[in-house]
C-alpha cells in the first residue's frame, strides 16, 4: 500500500509537485497521466527516493519512506524506465539477476528466478540468456527491463513510461502482457504515461495531473463519465470519449439472447470490447452482430439499438467481471 499525504516537491524556487494526496491500495494498478512536465514522473521517483520530497508524507505499508535506507528501499521496489536502462555490457540473464544478486541470493536461487522470469515474459532462455541488450529489439529489451524489475519479487512496481518508445503494435502487445501478468501477480503498480488509451486500458485507478497538482482521480469509467473540467475531458479524448468508454466494456455485458430472426452474418467473440463490436458494425454495414463463445458457438446477439439505449452513466460494472 502506498500513501501520499500533502506531498510537495520544490526544485530551488520552482514547484514541481504541489500538495498532492494519493492512496494506492495493495494490488491495485494506478496510472498517473498528464501532459509533459506535469510532475507525474517526479511523483513516481519520489516513491523510491530517487528524488527526495520537500514536504508532506509518503508512506509505504504505513511506514514513512524516510525511515528506510534508500538503497534497501529501492531493492524492494521494482523500477522500469522508458529506455530500459539495461546495462549494455551485461548479458540478458545477468541484467535480470541484478537485484537478487545485490540482495545476496545464492547463485542457484538467482539462476532459478532468472529462468522463471524469462519464461514468464516470453523470452526463450536458450535464445536470449546470453544475448547483449544491443542485440534485442525495443520490445524484447523492455521485456527484459520488466523481468529485471520483477526479479526480487517486489510488492511494488514503478513504471515510468515503459512503453513510450515502442511502435504501436509492440506497445499494444506488451500492454496485453502486462495486464495478464498483473492479473496473475497482483503487484501494487504505479504507472506513468501520457498515452491515455494505455492508462484507460491498464489502470484500476486513474490520476490526472496538471502543473504539479492532481486535477481528478478515480476509476477510468468514472472519469470518462464525469470529467471534472475541459482539461480532463480533452485529455480523455473529447468527442472520442464514447468510444473510449466502449473500449472498457465487454461485448457480453450488452449481449441480448438470440432473437427469433435469423442470426446475423457477422460474428464477434463475447470477450471482445464493445468498441470492437461497434467498429465491426461500421465495417460490415450492419446494426446486428452474432456473439459467439470461444468455440465459435453462437450465444447471443449484439444490436446497435440496445447498445445506444444502455449507454447510460450507471452502466459499466463490466470491468469487474
Amino acid at each position: 500500500m502506498i500513501e501520499l499525504a500533502h506531498v510537495t516537491k520544490r526544485f530551488d524556487d520552482a514547484v514541481a509537485v504541489d500538495d498532492i494526496s494519493l492512496h494506492i491500495a495493495k494490488g491495485k494498478f494506478c496510472a498517473l497521466v498528464g501532459t509533459s512536465g506535469c510532475g507525474k514522473s517526479t511523483t513516481l521517483r519520489m516513491i523510491n527516493r530517487l528524488i527526495e520530497h520537500s514536504e508532506g508524507d509518503i508512506l509505504l505499508d504505513g511506514q514513512p519512506i524516510a525511515a528506510y535506507d534508500p538503497v534497501k528501499l529501492r531493492r524492494r521496489i521494482g523500477y522500469v524506465i522508458q529506455h530500459t536502462g539495461l546495462f549494455p555490457h551485461w548479458t540478458v540473464a545477468r541484467n535480470i539477476g541484478l537485484v537478487p544478486r545485490l540482495l545476496k541470493w545464492s547463485a542457484a536461487e538467482v539462476q532459478a528466478k532468472v529462468d522463471e522470469l524469462m519464461g514468464l515474459l516470453g523470452l526463450p532462455k536458450d535464445e536470449f540468456a546470453h544475448k547483449y541488450p544491443h542485440q534485442l529489439s525495443g520490445g524484447q529489451a523492455q521485456r527484459v527491463g520488466v523481468a529485471r524489475a520483477l526479479a526480487a519479487d517486489p510488492d511494488i512496481l514503478l513504471m515510468d513510461e515503459p512503453f513510450g518508445a515502442l511502435d504501436p503494435i509492440t506497445r499494444e502487445k506488451l500492454q496485453d502482457e502486462l495486464a495478464r501478468l498483473q492479473a496473475k501477480m497482483h503487484k501494487t503498480v504505479v504507472f506513468v504515461t501520457h498515452d491515455m488509451d494505455e492508462a484507460l486500458r491498464l489502470a484500476d485507478h486513474l490520476v490526472v495531473m496538471r502543473e504539479g497538482r492532481i486535477v481528478q482521480q478515480g476509476t477510468p469509467l468514472a472519469l470518462l463519465q464525469h470529467p471534472q473540467d475541459s482539461f480532463v475531458e480533452s485529455l480523455l479524448g473529447g468527442l472520442e470519449r464514447g468510444l473510449k468508454q466502449a473500449a472498457l466494456t465487454r461485448v457480453k455485458d450488452h449481449m441480448a439472447p438470440m432473437g427469433p430472426t435469423l442470426p446475423a452474418q457477422s460474428r464477434i467473440p463475447a470477450t471482445f470490447s464493445l468498441r470492437q463490436g461497434l467498429s465491426m458494425m461500421l465495417r460490415d454495414h450492419t446494426d446486428r452482430l452474432t456473439v459467439v463463445d470461444q468455440h465459435d458457438v453462437p450465444v447471443g446477439e449484439l444490436t446497435l439499438r440496445k447498445i445506444v439505449k444502455e449507454a447510460q452513466p450507471e452502466q459499466g460494472k463490466a470491468r469487474e467481471s
Partner: peptide
C-alpha cells in the same frame, strides 16, 4: 549513458 546510471540507482545499487 545517464539513463543506465539512473537505472542502476533505481535498482538499488550503492
Amino acid at each position: 549513458s545517464p539513463e543506465t546510471l539512473e537505472a542502476a540507482r533505481g535498482m538499488g545499487m550503492r
